[in-house]
Design a protein around this nucleic acid. Structure first.
Length: 424
RNA sequence: GGAGGAGUACCCAAGAGGCUGAAGGGGCCAGCUUGGAAAGCUGGUAGGUCGAUGAUUCGGCGCAGGGGUUCAAAACCCCUCUCCUCCGCCA
């Protein structure tokens, strides 16, 4: 959430920056008018409340002294009604302003490329060169079906489209990968392992920015508690500290969370329909950081390195892009995407993204920190990154390490987990 | 699912309509004491948020959350959430 005071003071700059995402943000002018109105009412109602408090105090005093307080009663006879009316107006204004702010995305960072969509993302790094084959490589859905390690057809029987059964060495590859990733981040990179609930409430979804704007993307549980299936570990993990004040000495806090994520993929009908690139259910190892404001840029770069390390150890070709304003996620100020080379797409495909939300989620979720006992609480910065999307890593391994006979070479680092060196 | 109990500031805890910005502890900070520390003693400290204000400061809200009764509510009423105990069920 944006800070209404900052918005008030830097209206033009805020609207200009937001417009870089594309879209019309002139409605913020209306929001500021409501904010103005709100402050006028606050002034009025607080004067009345102060008057009433004073009178009530006097009545108490009179009663103790056995004096007659009728006079005072007369004075404030109608004050309660006035307060009630103003309070109701205030509440409505508050709600409208809050709602508008909740559906307004984060400001993009000043230094990221301005652009419309992924075409305008800026490539900043390549690792290895795209895999070359001296035979006709197969897409992962064909490879996996032949090896009988993924079953797309029968999965539709169990659930429906965009669900897959992992089987045999396919299931083991998935498990090997997330164990490998967790070990890397927890043991080598110093993140604390984190296993959150997979059902989250509305407040959590609002806290990280999924709601209210993107409610259609979430699976809702039919239960009167209003719970939703975890769409990314970012939600439960960042909300872990919702409404808390952390100690500076504990920052940065680093978590690595493995979760199964569930998404409706509402807007992507017809896209990536083959294989397991885009599923309603997928596994992901996530990296989360809570930092002091002055450290978040540095921590973002470190997180990117931690994330890249996974692909480097696996020996997969990838590139890193700096997302342009048009492709940037709702809650984020800056995002790097890591894109892995996929022969079936003959292109780089997103396998993880590493983002800095700065104080946007912290303000929504009310997560602060104190520099020391006496200092005022300030909002933390939150960062999250993939470490990585497990299903898409399976795809990358199958497609990049396939051999002419349709078998798959298991990367060295996975062999201790897989107990085999070839999937056949 | 059934029956009870509880939720007050960093922690423990008093408080059953007005003098409670919340007694009392613990903690924390400073000082005395000490070679240094502990203990002891003395003094100090109470959060957050919103609004006004150049600073100082003033005012509103705040005793799990929401709503109500009242001139006035931590206290009374209603709803919700969380935790605890017992019973039932269960991986």
């Amino acid at each position: 959430m944006l800070d209404i005071k900052d918005l008030r003071e830097q209206k033009e700059r805020y609207i200009e920056l937001l417009s870089r995402r594309g879209g019309d943000f002139s409605y913020l002018e209306e929001v500021l008018k409501k904010d103005e109105e709100r402050r006028i009412i606050i002034k009025k109602v607080e004067v009345l409340k102060a008057k009433r408090n004073e009178a009530s105090k006097k009545i108490g005093l009179y009663k103790r002294e056995r004096k007659n307080p009728t006079e005072i009663f007369k004075e404030i006879q109608f004050i309660g009604d006035d307060i009630k009316v103003l309070d109701e107006q205030l509440k409505m204004l508050d709600e409208e302003i809050k709602y508008q702010l909740l559906i307004t995305p984060n400001l993009p960072a000043e230094d990221i490329p301005i652009g419309k969509d992924e075409e305008d993302n800026q490539e900043i790094k390549r690792y290895m060169t795209p895999t070359k084959f001296d035979f006709e490589p197969l897409p992962h859905w064909d490879l996996a079906t032949k090896l009988d390690i993924l079953d797309f057809e029968r999965a539709t029987k169990i659930t429906g489209s965009r669900f897959t059964v992992y089987k045999g060495l396919g299931a083991r590859l998935e498990r090997a990968l997330f164990n490998f990733m967790l070990d890397l981040h927890a043991i080598e990179h110093g993140y604390t392992e984190f296993m959150p609930p997979y059902l989250v409430n509305r407040a959590s979804m609002i806290g990280t920015g999924q709601f209210p704007k993107f409610e259609d993307d979430a699976f809702k549980v039919d239960d009167d508690r209003e719970l939703f299936l975890n769409p990314t570990a970012e939600v439960p993990t960042i909300n872990y500290y919702r409404d808390e004040v952390l100690d500076m000495k504990d920052l940065p806090i680093k978590f690595t969370a493995f979760t199964t994520a569930f998404r409706k993929e509402a807007g992507s009908a017809g896209r990536d329909t083959r294989g397991i690139i885009r599923q309603h259910q997928f596994n992901k190892v996530e990296l989360i950081k809570f930092t002091a404001p002055e450290d978040s840029s540095k921590e973002l770069e470190l997180m990117l390195k931690d994330s890249e390390k996974v692909l480097e150890l696996l020996g997969l070709p990838y590139r890193v892009v700096n997302l342009c304003t048009g492709d940037l996620g709702f809650s984020m100020r800056k995002t790097y995407d890591i894109e892995v080379w996929l022969p079936s797409y003959n292109a780089y495909k997103e396998i993880g993204s590493i983002s800095n939300a700065e104080d946007y989620q912290a303000r929504r979720a009310n997560i602060k920190f104190k520099r020391d006992a006496k200092s005022k609480p300030e909002y933390v910065h939150t960062l999250n990154g993939s470490g990585l999307a497990v299903g898409r890593t399976v795809v990358a391994i199958l497609e990049n390490f396939q051999q002419e006979d349709g078998t798959i070479i298991v990367p060295k680092v996975l062999q201790p987990y897989m107990k085999v060196d070839v999937i056949k």
